[in-house]
């Protein structure tokens, strides 16, 4: 399973929609639509730059939902990834309702732990939405159990201690964490997706050899950031996505 992240509204709302569609056509199975936020403490420099540009361009909550709606039929599962305050501000129940109505599959919450998520758990149950919480190498066994029990769809293993896009080549933390999650999760069928700063097909294949899902963000966003225009960005995005998807398929088959 290849999971690709792109922020809504970057480079424009329509450009972002085109980028997500290109990414899905080139082989992404799950899309994380980023909700650009003013204070993204989990994100590295690449995603920060794109989110800042989207905000400077005036992206709003309605644009995030419009993006979801516009790509819902593209052939992938569409989730929103958002820091908690924009959801809190929109209204948790209202956001769940509108996300479901737009055809979204669920929400990934990097700074919401299940301990604080009563309202979101109730709202996601009511609207049949997936809820993806994070586990980390520092999570205790008890927290891995509790967090996986609260997840639906998949669990996000942030296997490098650090922000998005960081990669430690020698890290052995990822396979160890995935193994712990599988051992501790009450639901053995819950897929484990790993975010590890994957940049190409070879690295995707390596991660796919031990995890159910490979999450790629910064490298994909970088295709758009580094391109002279949208067409060139989409082209780079298609090439990279195909390479990543090839890596994932190679290992999975």
């Amino acid at each position: 399973m290849l999971v690709g992240y792109l922020p809504a509204g970057f480079p424009t709302v329509d450009g972002g929609i085109a980028a997500i569609r290109a990414m899905v056509e080139a082989g992404v199975d799950v899309v994380e639509v980023g909700f650009p936020y003013s204070d993204p403490v989990m994100d590295g420099p690449v995603i920060q730059r794109a989110a800042e540009a989207a905000l400077a361009g005036g992206v709003r909550a309605a644009d995030v939902l419009r993006t979801v709606e516009a790509v819902a039929d593209a052939g992938a599962s569409i989730l929103v990834m958002s820091y908690w305050n924009p959801i809190e501000r929109y209204g948790v129940a209202a956001f769940a309702r509108d996300l479901a109505a737009a055809g979204g599959a669920g929400l990934i919450t990097p700074d919401l732990i299940p301990d604080e998520a009563d309202e979101w758990i109730a709202a996601s149950d009511e609207h049949g939405l997936d809820r993806v919480f994070l586990v980390a190498p520092s999570s205790t066994d008890e927290r891995v159990r509790m967090t996986t029990a609260a997840c639906r769809g998949f669990v996000y293993a942030s296997s490098v201690m650090g922000v998005t896009g960081a990669r430690d080549q020698t890290s052995s933390a990822a396979p160890v964490l995935v193994d712990r999650v599988r051992r501790l999760s009450a639901d053995p069928a819950l897929p484990v997706a790993v975010g590890l700063g994957v940049r190409d097909g070879a690295q995707a294949a390596e991660v796919a050899s031990f995890a159910d899902g490979v999450i790629v963000g910064s490298a994909l966003v970088g295709c758009l950031l580094g391109a002279p225009d949208l067409d060139a960005g989409l082209s780079a995005l298609r090439t990279l996505t195909a390479d990543l998807a090839g890596g994932v398929t190679r290992t999975s088959s």
Partner: peptide, 19 residues
């Protein structure tokens, strides 16, 4: 759990919870 009424708590990445 670190709440003052409805305020406070922990809205941080899971990676920081152990610390």
């Amino acid at each position: 759990t670190g709440h003052f009424g409805r305020y406070g708590g922990r809205f941080v990445p899971e990676a920081l919870i152990a610390a």
